[in-house]
């Protein structure tokens, strides 16, 4: 033992070695986690990559082995064929209108209902909240057929309004906003505004909504994708090709045009563009809104 090691309060050589080996082990574990995560994310990305690259491949190359990620002879033939032979843009347009209107409606109803359920403590409202939560238990498929007959009776088949019927209110959205209001908007803030002379509508627009931006952003993304990826309801409401949403269109692609992998890939790749754009744009909101319900000042 050296003199330095023997000083009281200092670590002995053995302790230092132990600390070093512990640190080394921790670093090794970190590296292992990194590698694992990289592999998993590659595995998740791979199908997506193949989908996009297949869209650019000729039929011969598509079937070649081993498969290539970057096509040898990239071609736009699949894309132009898809765009020429099918009303793909029309379907994307239908889906966009449907998803945007549905999101707006869900955001509006959730914000109003969530705020009122959180900040106006009446017994009747808590019963109402229970009822709203209970609706989340009933699967959509259960009331899909009755809803279809309603849409038919109203003459809404093959219209955007018909698509929207089941997508105007989202019980989870109301719940999400209610929890966010409870956690991030103290009563005193609203009371202070009332004393300052603000009316209830003013408080909602100028105080509550701005403070719910994060949560509403997250809910907006959720609502958009819920409508964008909806399949069963659009499938039965839209029976004419020009009224299809993109999901329905893509599904019918495979049966209607045999299985042309190149075209399906090209069409799917085109469909991904709006979803990815929106997600990238709202990503921060999304993570924040879902992860942190309590924004304590």
């Amino acid at each position: 033992m050296s003199i330095a090691d023997a000083r009281p309060g200092e670590m002995t050589a053995a302790e230092i070695a132990l600390g070093r080996s512990r640190r080394r082990r921790r670093r090794a574990a970190d590296r292992l986690i990194d590698v694992l995560l990289t592999v998993v994310s590659c595995l998740m990305l791979l199908p997506l990559l193949f989908l996009v690259s297949n869209g650019f491949k000729t039929p011969q190359e598509m079937l070649a082995w081993p498969p290539t990620i970057i096509p040898n002879e990239p071609t736009f033939a699949n894309f132009s064929a898809v765009l020429r032979d099918t009303p793909l843009l029309r379907w994307i347009g239908n889906s966009l209108v449907f998803a945007v209107l549905s999101s707006i409606s869900i955001l509006a109803t959730s914000a109003i209902a969530g705020y009122i359920l959180a900040k106006f403590p009446f017994r009747s409202l808590s019963v109402l909240f229970m009822v709203i939560l209970a609706t989340a238990i009933v699967p959509f498929e259960v009331y899909m057929i009755p809803l279809y007959f309603q849409a038919q009776a109203l003459g809404l088949l093959n219209t955007t309004w018909g698509l929207l019927l089941g997508y105007l209110v989202m019980s989870f959205g109301i719940f999400l906003i209610r929890q966010n209001v409870i956690h991030s908007i103290p009563d005193e803030l609203i009371e202070a505004a009332r004393i300052d002379g603000a009316g209830e509508l003013w408080i909602f627009w100028r105080i509550v909504l701005p403070l719910l931006r994060g949560a509403l952003g997250a809910l907006g993304v959720l609502a958009f994708f819920q409508a964008w990826t909806a399949f069963a309801w659009p499938l039965i409401v839209a029976s004419r090709s020009e009224a299809y949403t993109i999901e329905v269109g893509l599904a019918l692609f495979q049966t209607g045009f045999t299985v042309d992998l190149g075209r399906v890939s090209a069409a799917s790749a085109l469909v991904l563009i709006p979803s990815i754009t929106l997600f990238v744009w709202l990503r921060r909101n999304f993570v924040q809104g879902v992860a942190s319900t309590g924004l304590k000042e």
């Binding site: 103290p186 005193e188 803030l189 009371e191 202070a192 009332r194 004393i195 300052d196 002379g197 603000a198």
Partner: peptide, 14 residues
């Protein structure tokens, strides 16, 4: 409240 001509300071500042 707004017509009482009062101003209030809250514990959490609000």
């Amino acid at each position: 409240p707004k017509n009482r001509d009062i101003a209030m300071v809250f514990q959490n500042y609000a």
